[in-house]
Simulated scan of single mutants.
Amino acid sequence: MFNNFLRENKIAAALLTVLRIYLGYAWLTAGWGKITGGFDATGFLKGAAANPVAGPNGIVYGWYVSFLKAFAIPNAELFNVLIPWGEFLVGLGLILGCLTTAAMFFGLVMNFSFMLAGTVSHNPTDILMGFIILVAGVNAGKYGLDRYVLPFIRKAATKKEHQIQS
């Protein structure tokens, strides 16, 4: 019942619009601050690997520490681009309501990455709001560019499918 409300109701679409613009603004400004402020993830990545999330039985996310050491730290320059631009584009997508579900998915991936690295901050509330937007699907971008972009993508995909079948 709640899923139907989120996915189909016009009032829910309006509330989701406010929520996604709020969350989008937070993502956009965080990304822009990093883009214009000379962001360098190296220290954060090394710190997260050196001080992993630990519980009573040792390191909780050993696989994530391995990922940081084997891939993220050696490729810190890549992350210096991906993180700020990813945050900025997630924010832009949410504010404009353009590819909203995809933007929110990637926002959630980043939120979980930050949490796995041991940063709590506002990530839990962002994740909660993000899942609400993600569950709402198309309705979250109903009052945004998704209203025009998604039918265009569907039409192009259908046309491509017909070409493949021919």
Rank of each mutant, 00 (worst) to 15 (best):
M1L: 10
N3T: 08
N3P: 01
N4L: 02
E8G: 06
N9Q: 12
L15D: 03
L16V: 08
T17V: 01
T17K: 06
L19P: 03
L19I: 02
G24N: 08
Y25Q: 00
W32G: 06
K34Q: 03
G38P: 00
D40L: 12
D40N: 15
F44D: 01
L45V: 11
P56N: 13
G58N: 12
Y61D: 04
G62M: 05
W63I: 06
W63N: 15
A70L: 05
P74F: 07
I83E: 04
E87H: 09
V90D: 00
G93D: 10
G93F: 02
L94I: 02
L96R: 09
G97C: 12
G97V: 09
G97S: 13
G97L: 09
L99N: 05
A103H: 02
M104V: 15
F105K: 02
F106Y: 15
M110G: 05
F114S: 05
A117D: 02
G118K: 02
G118I: 03
N123Y: 15
N123Q: 15
T125I: 15
D126W: 13
L128C: 08
A136F: 04
A140L: 08
K142Y: 09
Y143H: 12
G144F: 02
F152K: 14
I153S: 08
T158H: 11
E161Q: 15
Q163M: 10
S166R: 15
S166H: 14
